[in-house]
Structure formats: C-alpha cells, structure tokens
Design a protein around this nucleic acid. Structure first.
Lengths: 114, 114
DNA sequence: AGCTTTGCTATTAAAATTATAGCATTATGA
DNA sequence: TCATAATGCTATAATTTTAATAGCAAAGCT
C-alpha cells in the first residue's frame, strides 16, 4: 500500500490534501492503536505484538515503516516510540478516549430493542 | 467484518474498551472520510461515492451500515447525515485538519534526501 | 411512456491482513 | 563458553477486505 504523503494523491484526494493523507494513514489497521499505545512509553516490536492482540508481524512491520516515514514514530534504544509530532497527534486523539467512554459508549446501553 | 461495539471484544481489546471499539470502527477504509465529508452537509449515496473517489459501492454501503449502527450517521430526507454524536466526533476530528496542514505537512518539505 | 436519479446487490478480481513457522542477531546466565 | 531467551524481523499460505464493474428495482420528473 502506498504511503500517504501530503501533497501527493492519496485515497480521498487527488491533490493530497494533508488531512486526507493523514486520514488515509491513520485509517489503516492498527495505526491509531499503535500510536495510542506508544504514548504510554516506548515499546519493543514484541510488546506491540502483544498489545495488538491479533496483528500479524507483517502488518505490524508495515505499519511501523509507514508511521516512521511519516515522522510519527521513531526507533530508540528502548524500542519504538513517538516522535514529537507523534505526541502532538496523540494529544489530538486523546479527547476521543474520554468521549468514547463518557458519551459514545453510553448510547449503546439502550440497544436491546432492534 | 464485525461491527465494533463498546463492551464487546474488538480488535485491540478483548473487553471492548470504548476507545478501542472506536478506533476499530474509524480505522476502516473511508470511515473517517465519510464523517469528514458529511459535516459539510447531508449527502446522497452517490454524492459520497463521488467524494470518496475510489470507494466501491459495496464498501460504501458496508461502512454506512456500520456508522449507522454505531449512531454516528443517520438517514434523512436529504440523504445521509451526521447524528448529534457524529457531529461531536467530528468536532474532535476537526483539529486534526489544521494540525495536518500547519504542522505535519510541513515536516515533509525536507524529505528530499534519501 | 420514457429518462434520470438513487440506493443499492451480484460477481469477480485485486489487495490487505492474518496465521504460523522460523531464522539471524544480540543479550543473559550458568 | 555454551545453552537459552529475547528481539526484530522474513517467508509462505490462507483468509478477509476492498475495488471494479455491471446492472437492477423503485421513485421522480417531463
């Protein structure tokens, strides 16, 4: 799969609008999960495999490469970790966590009719 | 593909933590793009097809079903549109747009080495 | 009655993801 | 020092998603 770069054609935008490139990148399996997890600290490849219960090593490796080329993660002596930009992005993702818990999840409680 | 419901096993969480269910849902092709687009107003099925340049009708339909079952979009007389929750989620997604443009995209400008 | 728009379904092909095994380093430990 | 374990993967094949394309039924003009 082509790595989405702002300014170049990506899914959703022939001109590669940054937000579309970003959505393309993040909308791949496990991408956001990896970022989410790395915020709590650097992880080894195997840590990530454990965290992402059902990811295959191929996919994990592909995702890591993409995220690295897109400047969101990097390798350190302690394993993979977020770059400054990665942290910035996480900060934007973060509010989704509380919204999911406090608002979104609640709306499923009355889903027993159907 | 199983529709991710908070409280039930999803990719990334056997207990279905809300954020994981949300990331699973949004991390599917075009999901965030659809939400992004619908914020600008209700769209018909065909509008969405045009917007999501390369989506197939099957995938679009699948995604629409998922987003509907997860209370993020709904059908109105004008076509598909965001629910209140969908709007809330968009508001959380929105900052990513300016960050992508003003911060993230900039970091690619010096990527001509390699 | 014909033509268009809309919201799909069906079918097939291509691509992504998973599952599983396993290998080459580099510690670690006895 | 030699075995053992941890790490970061690659290879291969099976499965699942997604895309491409055609087309149809229902509703709305004209």
């Amino acid at each position: 799969m082509k790595i989405p770069v702002p300014g170049q054609p990506v899914r959703g935008s022939k001109t590669g609008q940054p937000i579309m490139a970003l959505l393309d990148l993040l909308g791949r399996s496990w991408a956001m999960g990896i970022i989410w997890h790395l915020y709590s600290g650097p992880s080894t490849f195997r840590d990530l495999q454990d965290y992402c219960e059902s990811i295959s090593p191929n996919t994990l490796n592909t995702r890591l490469k993409e995220l690295r080329e897109c400047h969101l993660i990097t390798r350190t002596m302690d394993g993979y970790s977020l770059t400054e930009q990665g942290v910035e992005l996480f900060e934007l993702l973060k509010p989704m966590g509380s919204w999911a818990r406090h608002n979104w999840a609640k709306s499923f409680e009355n889903d027993n009719q159907k």
